[in-house]
Amino acid sequence: MTALADHALIDRFLEMMTAEAGAAPNTVAAYRSDLALASQRLDGGLAAADADALTRVANDWAALSRSTVARKSASLRRFYAFLADEGHRADDPGKALPRPGTARPLPKVLSHADVDRLFAAVAERQARPIADPNDLRLAALIELLYGSGLRATELVSLPRNAVHPDRPFLILRGKGGRERLVPISDRARAAVAVWRDHVDSDRLWLFPSGKGHLSRIRLYQLVKALAADAGVPPDRVSPHVLRHAFATHLLEGGADLRALQSMLGHADIATTEIYTHVDASRLVELVNSRHPLADVPARVDVPPRAP
C-alpha cells in the first residue's frame, strides 16, 4: 500500500477511536504520532506490513522505556485489529509486536509536611504588601489540584462559572467523555471565588490566558516554581503529583477505594489501586481499628488434655 493509503487508514482508525471508543484527545494524538512514525519507518508500508517488518519497527524501540514501548505496541495492535475488522487485511500481524509487562511504577509521593510547605508558600505570596492577582490564581489552582484531584487538563479548561459558591461539587466530563461528580472543599471554593473576581465576566474560562485558557505547560511551570519557593525539590512536584497526593492522603485517612475511583474518574479500579502504596503499619492500624470484630475478644478453645 502507498503512504497515502497509510495516511487515509490512520485517519479512519482515529475517527473510530474518537467516535466509538471514546478516546481522549491526548490518546488520539499519541496514537497518531506512533502510527505516523511507524509508517515513516516502513516507507509508507505500515498498513501492509508483515511480522518481519513489525519486528524491525519494534527493534527501534530498544532504548525506550517499558511504558512507551507498551503504548506504541498498543497503538499498532489496535490499528491492525481495526484493519482486520474493516476487511482491509485478511490477517492481523500485531502478534509480532512486543508486550512489555504492565507493572506500573509507584507514583511520586508528597508527605503531609511537603504539602503544608507548598500552601505556606502560597500564603506567603498572598501576604505581600503589593497584591498580585497571579498569586490569587495560584492559590485557586493549588487548592483545586490537591483538594479535588483534578487532572491538569480538566483544571486549566474549567469554565468560568464551573465552581459555584453554594455547591460543594462540580460535574466534569473527563477521559472518554465520562461524567463524574467531584467534591470541592470549602477552602477551594473560597479561593476560586476570590480569584474569579479578577476574571472579566465575558471570559469563557476560569483560568484564561490570551484568547484561550491557561496551558498545561504553564501550569506545570507554576507548580515547579512554587515548589522551589517552598523548599520542596521541584523534580518531586508536578500537577499530577498533587493529584497523587490527593488520592494517597485520602486513602491514608481511611477513604473507600470505590469512592476514590469515582472522584478520580478511573474507568478501571485497577488504576486506582496504584494508590494503595500506604505504609504496611497504616494498613494494619486500619484493620485493627475499623474491622467489625476489632473490639470483640477472640475466643480460644483449648482442647482437653489426653488422659
Rank of each mutant, 00 (worst) to 15 (best):
F82V: 04
E86M: 15
E86Y: 06
G87A: 08
H88K: 08
A90E: 11
D91L: 10
D91M: 08
D92S: 04
K95G: 13
P98D: 09
R99G: 10
L106M: 15
P107F: 12
V109N: 11
S111G: 15
H112S: 14
A113W: 11
A113Y: 13
A113D: 08
A113G: 12
L118Q: 03
L118A: 03
F119I: 06
A120E: 13
A120T: 06
V122R: 02
A123R: 12
A123D: 14
A123E: 07
E124A: 15
Q126W: 10
R128T: 13
I130H: 14
L136R: 03
R137W: 01
L138F: 02
L138H: 04
A140H: 01
L141Y: 00
L141D: 02
E143R: 04
E143I: 03
L145D: 01
Y146A: 06
G149L: 04
G149A: 12
L150M: 15
L150V: 08
T153W: 08
L155H: 01
V156I: 08
L158Q: 00
L158C: 07
R160Q: 04
N161V: 05
A162W: 03
A162E: 05
A162N: 05
P165K: 08
G174K: 08
K175D: 11
G176I: 07
G176Y: 08
R178T: 12
E179P: 03
L181Y: 13
P183D: 15
P183S: 12
S185N: 13
D186Y: 13
A188R: 00
A188D: 03
A191Y: 00
V192T: 04
A193S: 10
D200Q: 11
S201H: 11
H213G: 01
I217V: 15
I217A: 11
L219K: 00
Q221E: 09
V223E: 01
A225W: 01
A225F: 10
A225P: 02
A228Y: 06
